[in-house]
């Protein structure tokens, strides 16, 4: 591995660590996963021409490490249950009236040019802050689905919940995230 690659790898380390921390919510486990990823990256990194494809490759290694860790921890998740997620009902009650229609002030608006937002670092800071607001187990189920790309069948198995429960949890996570993004980002953009 040449020096440039080595410098690139250390430069990407904070990104990898942030990605792992968000999902594992355990600094030690995140550190381990990143360490193992970087070790694995020492082999075979010369195949990559561009920095972005190199980063994608690293993330895919890291993703597998995170899945392994989550699988080994899955008994803990199911033992502690999903009871902290009842807060999701309060949000839904606030957004809809008794007939299930949007409250006047809560009706979703158009998000102007999301692609342009994706290019701004500030957007990703808000995105992470919104993820952090999710109850821990809701966040974990959501990230298994959206960041790790697991199918709901497998998530149900790992988290020992039924598929309908899994859909409810994912629905609450998405509802909460889009409400947070709309309030903290898109509404302020003058969209």
């Amino acid at each position: 591995m040449d020096l440039d690659r080595q410098a690139e790898l250390s430069a990407l380390r904070p990104d990898l660590l942030r990605f792992a921390r968000l999902q594992l919510r355990d600094a030690g486990a995140a550190e381990d996963a990143v360490q193992e990823t970087m070790l694995a990256a020492l082999v075979g990194s010369d195949r990559f021409q561009s920095r972005s494809s190199y980063k994608t490759w690293l993330i895919s290694i890291l993703r597998n490490k995170i899945i392994d860790i989550i699988r080994s921890q899955s008994r803990e998740i199911s033992a502690s249950g999903l009871s902290d997620d009842d807060a999701g009902d309060d949000l839904t009650d606030a957004l809809f009236d008794r007939r299930g229609h949007w409250q006047e002030t809560a009706r979703p608006g158009r998000w102007a040019d999301p692609e342009a937002s994706f290019e701004q670092q500030q957007f990703w800071a808000v995105f992470e802050a919104c993820l952090d607001l999710l109850p821990e187990r809701t966040a974990r189920v959501f990230m298994m689905r959206e960041f790790l790309g697991l199918e709901t069948d497998e998530i149900c198995k790992e988290a020992s919940i039924s598929s309908s429960n899994c859909w409810v949890v994912l629905h609450r996570a998405r509802m909460s995230l889009r409400t947070c993004l709309e309030t903290k980002w898109f509404a302020g953009e003058g969209a």
Binding site: F19, T56, I59, P108, F118, E146, F147, L177, R178, L181
Partner: peptide, 15 residues
């Protein structure tokens, strides 16, 4: 917004 959310997650996780 659901599509944007999914695209954002892809982007965030896709490096």
């Amino acid at each position: 917004q659901m599509s944007v959310l999914r695209a954002a997650c892809r982007r965030f996780g896709g490096g």
